[in-house]
Design a protein around this nucleic acid. Structure first.
Length: 491
RNA sequence: GGCCCCUUCGUCUAAUCGGUGAGGACACCAGCCUUUCAAGCUGGCAGCAGGGGUUCAAAUCCCCUAGGGGUCACCA
């Protein structure tokens, strides 16, 4: 087997998008499956929109997800490229552009943006496809030199006027394009920088890329790139165009549909394991009924043949479900580490967290079955750390009734005597009390839960009581008595 | 508008060379479990875009129509 080399080439003009990561993931799974190499290249030829801030967040997103690369930024590679930033590879593009110019495969174009705009308008009015006329194709060298003196120019590739180009796509099969659809596209902009189509083709070749796996939106560009590669005398890589990810309304995924960037999902409390697993399932399936897979399984099972051809709709519900699954099945230690930053965000909780003897692990162990994100873990844990929580209004109406005060008083008496203060013993004691008072366990447990946590739902009550400890629990009973049951003539 | 891609439950998908009661998962509903809420378990609802062919037999092959998406930038 050839040495597989794939690349993921984001442009640092925004956060790492959910569609982008899926593409990165498929590249990564593919090359890891074949023992190949993953190259991270930064396509920053758009000087205006590129920013180091975005570069930073893209790299951090990749690292967070564990999508590592063998060549690219932050990696020293023996025998690798001098740079994996297109902005630092200008000399290469200039050389290749000059070669095309010398061989008359490309030419200078002096048309202004206004002229081209007007041309397109005209074509649109007569319902013609917008194409460049090729006006500057046949300038004489004298004309050209004269124009170059005081006009800006771009370089265009001379495209064939007839014939067809066939793209052999690993996912879609052979796709044929008629050359009459193409006009002479720009390969070097007026500022001297290469366009995407040009830089990408040059770099894919210079970097020895064997498989170009990218989003379907690039399929229409591929014949242009193949022709360009041919003009440059390059071998073309194999192509695979993966389907796009769409929003629930079938439109392109955008901010108005909710979170679109990896960082947003991280901040929501999504685990990288869950995001990876979910994304892998979006447009790919292992062929059997498996849904939950380790990264090793995914690597082993991945193949481009199993990638679907139709666009997939992003289903947040399923991602959340997977996240819940990982939350309750992964190592408690790991979950605690991942949850810690979310606790730290809440200064008040974090302060008590640190001085409290309540281990965060113990709390998480109790609540993680009931939540779906890391962020929700904190919400579900507040009453373990804070004393001034409020009491659920509906709950108090329902469970704090006449006579409840007496019951709570009895419970408090029992708990005071309970030793050891473990969930098992507490449970037995309260069961005994319920028999003794001839009332159902619910009549005791529901008001007790409300008194201790302020809520009507949550983890096992006896676990909560035991974990909080006798002192805190009794104090909370006392507080409830004063807040709800203190009347002049007693209850 | 031209060109290109796509079309199985609401959503993600499975179904070796055409022969299946069209399978799984999320969501939804019901039951079980139970001190609450979850989780878990069990069951249920729900699909081959439409129309023509080819064939003994079509989700699967061919054609047409419709719908969705992409592209036609000095953005990638």
């Amino acid at each position: 087997m050839e040495n597989t080399r794939v690349r993921f080439a984001p442009s640092p003009t925004g956060e790492l998008h959910i569609g982008g990561v899926r593409t990165a993931l498929f590249n990564w799974l593919f090359t890891r499956n074949r023992g190949g190499r993953m190259i991270l290249r930064i396509d920053d030829t758009d000087k205006q929109r590129s920013s180091p801030v975005f570069l930073d967040t893209i790299i951090r997103s990749m690292q967070w997800l564990g999508l590592n690369w063998d060549e690219g930024p932050q990696i020293e590679t023996e025998g690798g490229q001098d740079s994996y930033f297109q902005s630092e590879r200008q000399a290469i593009y200039e050389e290749e552009a000059q070669r095309l110019l010398d061989e008359k495969k490309a030419y200078y174009c002096f048309c202004t943006a206004e002229e081209l705009q007007a041309e397109k308008e005209r074509q649109r009015r007569v319902k013609q496809p917008p194409r460049y006329s090729g006006r500057c194709r046949n300038l004489t060298s004298a004309e050209r030199e004269k124009l170059k003196e005081d006009n800006s120019f771009v370089i265009r590739l001379l495209m064939p006027q007839e014939g067809t180009t066939v793209v052999r796509d690993l996912i879609r099969g052979e796709v044929t394009f008629d050359h009459t659809n193409f006009d002479d596209f720009i390969i070097v902009r007026s500022d001297g920088l290469p366009t995407y189509n040009f830089a990408s083709v040059v770099d894919d070749y210079k970097m020895g890329i064997t498989h170009v796996i990218r989003a379907e939106e690039h399929l229409s560009n591929t014949p242009r790139q193949q022709i360009l590669a041919q003009r440059l005398g390059y071998n073309i890589p194999q192509y695979a165009h993966v389907p796009m990810i769409l929003a629930p309304d079938h439109s392109k995924l955008s901010k108005r549909h909710g979170a679109t960037s990896v960082q947003e999902y991280r901040k929501m409390g999504i685990l990288p394991e869950a995001l990876i697993n979910y994304l892998a399932l979006l447009g790919w399936s292992p062929g059997d009924d498996r849904e939950i897979m380790t990264i090793e399984e995914m690597i082993e099972l991945f193949s481009l043949e199993k990638v679907s051809r139709n666009p997939a709709i992003f289903d947040l519900d399923k991602l959340i479900w997977l996240n819940g699954h990982y939350l309750r099945t992964m190592e408690l230690q790991t979950i605690a580490e991942r949850a810690r930053p979310f606790f730290q965000e809440n200064a008040e909780i974090w302060a008590t967290c640190r001085e409290s003897r309540l281990e965060i692990e113990d709390v998480i162990d109790l609540v993680r079955d009931r939540v779906k994100t890391l962020r929700e873990i904190v919400d579900a844990s507040t009453y373990f750390y804070l004393e001034d929580f409020s009491y659920d209004e509906k709950g108090t109406k329902k469970h704090f009734r006449k006579g409840t005060g007496d019951i709570l008083k009895k419970v408090a008496e029992v708990l005071e005597q309970t030793e050891p203060f473990t969930a098992d013993v507490i449970k037995k004691e309260l069961q005994r009390l319920s028999k003794e008072l001839k009332i159902s366990p619910a009549k005791i447990n529901l008001p007790v839960r409300l008194a201790v946590t302020g809520r009507t739902m949550g983890p096992d009550l006896f676990d909560i009581i035991s974990l909080l400890g006798k002192e805190k629990v009794l104090a909370r009973f006392k507080k409830v008595e004063e807040l709800f049951f203190k009347e002049p003539n007693g209850v």
